[in-house]
């Protein structure tokens, strides 16, 4: 299983290496705009949960970016599947489907980690230094794992690149804004809080924010993230199996 997973992961790394300068530029744009618009411009006068808005915002941006970047591996898989037909090369190779899933999930997580390092550096320039402790990284690993697994599963189910964009527009983008990233969900009505509690990103934002601001971690968030990750990787595996006719 390991060699197949490494081969898939190595391929994605080679492609990332070739695109790295462009990737860094692209990954920097949106967090930079958020920091300027929501953090820097209005942040100095706004306090949320006992900290400045910039300190509140940065962990939210990390949660959001680890989700969107991990999920963006779906587009790479789609391009490889629909336009370059490289997926056939993997299907014809003597590797298990779980190796393929693991390789692509690792690639998605790597993209998420690159984006997080960019945000941490940007945060440093905006005067916010977060506590990058064990629980901070654990929450990021779980969050990126969940959305990279979801990406692999979705990439196998969709019939075209347009379907993929539609899923992003209706699921990923709303979640990015409503998952406790830009504002505390405690201020919302109870019914809305209950709905948002079902989103894995809400738990990831909560866990990342608590850990990065040095607060006591809420273990239930980690358990929910872990269980969601286990569910999504199982779905991804089943979807790859189904992709072979």
């Amino acid at each position: 299983m390991i060699h197949g997973c490494l081969a898939i992961y190595y391929r994605e790394l080679m492609i990332m290496k070739r695109r790295l300068p462009k990737m860094i530029a692209t990954m920097s744009v949106s967090p930079l705009l958020y920091l300027i618009a929501f953090g820097y411009a209005m942040g100095e006068n706004v306090n949320v949960d006992g900290c400045s808005y910039l300190e509140f915002l940065l962990p939210g941006l990390i949660a959001m970016s680890s989700m969107t970047q991990a999920f963006s591996i779906a587009s790479e898989i789609n391009i490889a599947r629909f336009y370059w037909h490289i997926f056939e090369e993997f299907q014809a190779a003597p590797i298990s489907n779980i190796s393929y899933v693991a390789g692509e999930v690792l690639a998605g997580m790597t993209r998420a980690f690159i984006s997080i390092f960019i945000i941490l550096i940007l945060g440093y320039f905006f005067g916010v230094v977060l506590s990058c402790n064990f629980f901070f990284w654990l929450a990021i690993i779980l969050n990126s794992f969940i959305f990279a697994s979801l990406a692999v599963g979705m990439a196998m189910l969709v019939k075209s690149h347009a379907d993929q964009s539609m899923f992003s527009s209706f699921v990923i983008t709303p979640m990015a804004f409503l998952g406790g990233t830009l504002f505390p969900i405690d201020n919302l009505p109870i019914w809305a809080q209950k709905i948002l509690f079902l989103l894995p990103l809400t738990h990831a934002s909560k866990a990342i924010r608590a850990a990065s601001l040095g607060n006591r971690p809420d273990y239930s968030s980690y358990i929910i993230l872990f269980l969601t990750g286990a569910l999504f990787i199982s779905i991804a595996f089943l979807c790859v199996n189904k992709a072979r006719d």
Binding site: R11, M14, I15, R18, R19, W84, H85, I86, E88, E89, A92
Partner: peptide, 13 residues
């Protein structure tokens, strides 16, 4: 070994 009908090489590699 398989040589499929459509070109399925990694174009960026």
């Amino acid at each position: 070994g398989l040589v499929p009908q459509s070109i399925n090489l990694d174009q960026e590699l």
